[in-house]
Design a protein around this nucleic acid. Structure first.
Lengths: 137, 137
DNA sequence: TTTTATGCAAATTGTTTGCAGATAA
DNA sequence: TTATCTGCAAACAATTTGCATAAAA
C-alpha cells in the first residue's frame, strides 16, 4: 500500500483512500476486473464509495499510465495494472481473461512499420478460445 | 450485387433491399464504417431505412459470418466485410483503420496454445499509431 | 399463406458529467 | 488556504427491443 501511494504521488495524483483502494485491488489481481466488479469488491470495506468515483479513478489512473484498459468485447471495460503491452487470452466459456507475456510480436510490429510506414505506438492483442479448465468439462 | 444476394441466400437470410444495400456498402469499402456511417451513406438512396434496421442487419450478417465487428476503442463498433482474421492499424490522428494481411501471427498462436493449453479459435489484433499521411503534417 | 424483416418509439445500460460539500496538500 | 476529489443524481449515447405493419419466399 505504501508503494501504491508513492506511485500516485509520482504522477501528481492526490492520495485518497478511494484511489488507494481501487489501485490496490487492481495491483493484486490478475482477474482483469471491470469497474462494477471493483466497486462490488470494495463494498464491504468502502460502503460509501460511489460507482462514479470508481470510474473517475480508473480514468485518472489510465491517463497517468498506471493501468491499461481492456476491451475484450464484453459490454464493459476491464482493467489491468500490468501496463506492459501483452496479448490477452479470453475464454469464451468462462469469460476468464489471462495474460500472455511475450516478445514475439516485436518482429511483426517491425514488419508492419516497414511495409506500411505506419508508426506504431501501442497495441491491443486479444486471442479468443477455450481455456484448459473449460476444455475438460 | 448479384453475388451479394447469393451470399445472403446461402446463409438462409431473406434478401431485402436494405440488406443488399448495407452489405454492398461494406463489401466495396475498406473504410471500416460504423453503423451510423453506413446509415448516413445510405440516406440519399434509402431515406426511409431506419438506424435500427442497420443494427439488425449488421447483427444478422455478423451471426452469418459474412462480416466481422471491430472494436478499435472508439465509442462505437466498426464493421469489415473481410472476415479473414487480420491485424488492423488505427491512426490515432485521423482515426483511419487499415488492414494488414499476414500469416505472421500463426506461429505466435501456436506458441500460445503450446505454452498455455488454451485452444484459440479467433483473434483481434489492433495496432495504434500514426499513419503515413499524418506523419507528414 | 407463412415466416421473417422493417420502422418507429421506448427501453436499456455502461459510462460521463455538473455541482456542492469534503478532503488532501 | 486552495486545488482537487468525492458522491449524488441527472444526462448521455450507442445499441437493443417490442410490436404492428410490410414484404419475401
Amino acid at each position: 500500500m505504501q508503494r501504491i501511494a508513492e506511485m500516485l504521488k509520482a504522477k501528481n495524483l492526490k492520495v485518497t483512500p478511494q484511489r488507494l483502494a481501487i489501485f490496490n485491488v487492481l495491483y493484486h489481481t490478475t482477474e482483469h476486473p471491470s469497474a462494477e466488479t471493483i466497486y462490488q469488491a470494495l463494498q464491504p470495506t468502502h460502503p460509501t464509495m460511489s460507482l462514479a468515483t470508481v470510474y473517475k479513478t480508473l480514468d485518472a489512473l489510465k491517463k497517468a499510465n498506471l493501468i491499461q484498459e481492456l476491451n475484450v468485447g464484453e459490454d464493459s471495460f476491464r482493467y489491468d495494472a500490468n501496463i506492459s503491452p501483452h496479448p490477452h487470452l479470453i475464454c469464451l466459456k468462462c469469460k476468464k481473461v489471462m495474460d500472455f507475456h511475450t516478445h514475439a510480436l516485436d518482429s511483426l510490429i517491425d514488419k508492419v512499420q516497414e511495409e506500411t510506414d505506419f508508426k506504431i505506438l501501442s497495441q491491443k492483442v486479444y486471442f479468443y478460445g477455450v481455456c484448459p479448465d473449460c476444455q475438460e468439462s
